[in-house]
């Protein structure tokens, strides 16, 4: 029996020290890029479908792209910061929560990257196809 064992040793949790990254920061790092893309897709599709022909439409589309890309960039930077922070110590000294933060924030990097691609592809369409009725 393991009566004498320290609970931390048994299942690693909870750790000895807090990670210093709040849940909202982590959530934004993970999903910020995706949310920006979702809004860009739905709003872009709606504007393109219902408003093209109006001279202002194409500028709304460009504006949407700028805003969405800014959010993506912020998410990417936040994720990058979280990764840096979580990996500041050598491997053996990191807590499981830091590993978790690193994992989620790396995911955020990928998702933000994909959001960047999808939004940029959409902007390519706006530039090449134009927004004429």
């Amino acid at each position: 029996m393991s009566q004498a064992r320290n609970p931390y040793e048994i299942h690693d949790y909870p750790s000895r020290r807090p990670t210093g990254v709040g849940p909202w920061t982590l959530a934004f790092a993970l999903f910020g890029g995706t949310i920006a893309w979702t809004v860009h897709l739905i709003a872009g599709y709606s504007v393109a479908n219902y408003m093209c022909g109006d001279a202002v439409a194409v500028w709304i589309l460009h504006g949407l792209t700028v805003v969405a890309l800014t959010v993506v960039a912020l998410a990417f930077l936040t994720a990058l910061r979280v990764v840096r922070h979580a990996t500041r110590l050598p491997k053996g000294e990191r807590t499981p929560e830091e590993d978790r933060d690193q994992f989620l924030a790396s995911g955020g990097l990928l998702l933000a990257g994909l959001g960047f691609m999808a939004i940029t592809f959409g902007e390519v369409a706006v530039v090449v196809a134009g927004c004429t009725p």
Binding site: A48, N49, M117, A125, A129, C131
Partner: peptide, 20 residues
Amino acid sequence: GLDLLPISFFSAASFTIAIP
């Protein structure tokens, strides 16, 4: 028969999914 630009947004998403 939807217009080219609206459907191109969905082309964009389709291309992006090739990356993951």
